Amino acid sequence: MRRLQASFIHCLVAPLLLATAGLSRADHFVIGVEDVDYAPIMSTADKGEFRGYVRELLDLFARRHGHRFDYLPLPTKRLTAEHVAGRLDAVFPDSETWEADTKRGRTLVYSEPAVPFQDVVMVPLAKRDQPVRSLGIVRGYTPKRFLPLIEAGSLTVTEAGDPSRLMRMALADRVDGVQLALPVALYQLEQLGRPDALVPSTALRPMPYAYHYRLSSVRHDGLIAQFNRFLRDEQAAIAALQRRYGLDAKVTPAPR
């Protein structure tokens, strides 16, 4: 895998010099993606092969416009560093608030929200309304909406390498709850054969939290504009894809 990544990055330098402020004349793009198991949204768990909803969404976009996408999985911090250095055509997922220090001084263009989902804290059913004092998160992620509680010392954080380990931690009472995208949590519970063992906590506000991922690019603002049109024009196909991957799952907060 390291050899493949090195060859990708080496081969990218010359083609990227042809890029302009708009869409490059070339229809071949290398998209940097997170090397993470966050199924069904996205995953590289199967021998580094990029799979999941995001892969199908980007492939559909590429087919609609005659592009060819190659996907390069990288750790989160390295992904941003390679992007701002100009060695990737675009990155998914991204957000304006991620890795702000690394992006300082560079202008990135972001797409409209491309993968909406609800971010929840999953807890055992019996503890649904109880305070959450220890939280499990995926390593490398920052639980920004809980930072005030963490800084006040009322919430401790434990990291795990992937969502499956997080779910096992919660099921074993090693943490009070785990923070995940709702579709990811539901998928992992199904994989563990315990679909009803954990539920979204109602003790944390806001619950749930609406979130989304975006496509970003340092060089190809034309590609981002094209992707935005694709998101608007292909709503029916995208909705069907979301249903197939369970991304239409929603939690209705209980009345206050």
Rank of each mutant, 00 (worst) to 15 (best):
I137Q: 09
T156R: 15
H220Y: 02
T76E: 15
G105M: 04
L60T: 00
E151K: 15
R219H: 13
E234G: 00
T107M: 14
K127E: 13
P208D: 11
Q179I: 04
R219E: 09
D101K: 10
D173A: 09
R55W: 02
Q188G: 06
A100H: 10
G140W: 01
L147S: 05
L58H: 09
L108W: 04
P73W: 03
A81L: 14
A152D: 05
A254T: 11
L58Q: 09
S111Y: 09
F29Y: 11
V138Y: 03
P124Y: 08
S201E: 11
A26D: 09
R194N: 12
A225W: 11
M207I: 12
K127W: 12
D70Y: 04
E112W: 13
P131H: 06
A210C: 03
D119L: 15
P208K: 08
Q118I: 01
A236I: 09
Y213G: 13
L57C: 04
P143E: 10
D101Y: 14
D59Y: 13
D129V: 08
E34M: 15
L88V: 06
Q179C: 08
L58Y: 11
T107V: 08
D221I: 12
D101S: 09
V54M: 14
A170E: 00
L215Q: 00
L223T: 07
V109F: 04
P131S: 02
I224C: 05
R104K: 14
D173Q: 09
L166C: 00
S111T: 10
S201Y: 06
D94F: 10
G177N: 02
A197I: 08
P253C: 07
H10G: 03
T156G: 13
K47S: 10
P116S: 03
G22I: 01
V120E: 14
L186S: 08
R214A: 10
G22F: 06
T97Y: 15
Q188S: 12
P183C: 05
L135F: 00
P113R: 00
F227E: 06
L215W: 03
A14R: 12
I238G: 06
F117E: 10
A126N: 10
T102A: 11
S216R: 01
Q118R: 05
E56N: 03
T142S: 13
M167I: 13
I31R: 03
R2H: 13
D35Q: 07
G48L: 04
L135G: 05
A237T: 04
E99P: 02
V121H: 05
D173T: 02
L192N: 01
A26Q: 09
V54A: 15
T142Y: 14
A81V: 13
A210T: 06
G161P: 02
V84F: 01
L247C: 09
G52E: 12
R55G: 00
Q188L: 12
G161C: 06
R256T: 02
A45E: 10
K250P: 00
S43T: 10
A225K: 08
P208G: 03
A237M: 11
A45Q: 11
H220G: 04
L180N: 06
G48S: 04
P206T: 05
V91M: 10
Y110A: 01
K77I: 14
A203I: 00
P143S: 12
E49F: 01
H67Y: 15
A90M: 05
R219P: 08
L4K: 01
L166P: 00
R3G: 07
L247N: 07
T107G: 08
V199Q: 13
D101I: 12
L247G: 08
K127Y: 07
V178R: 04
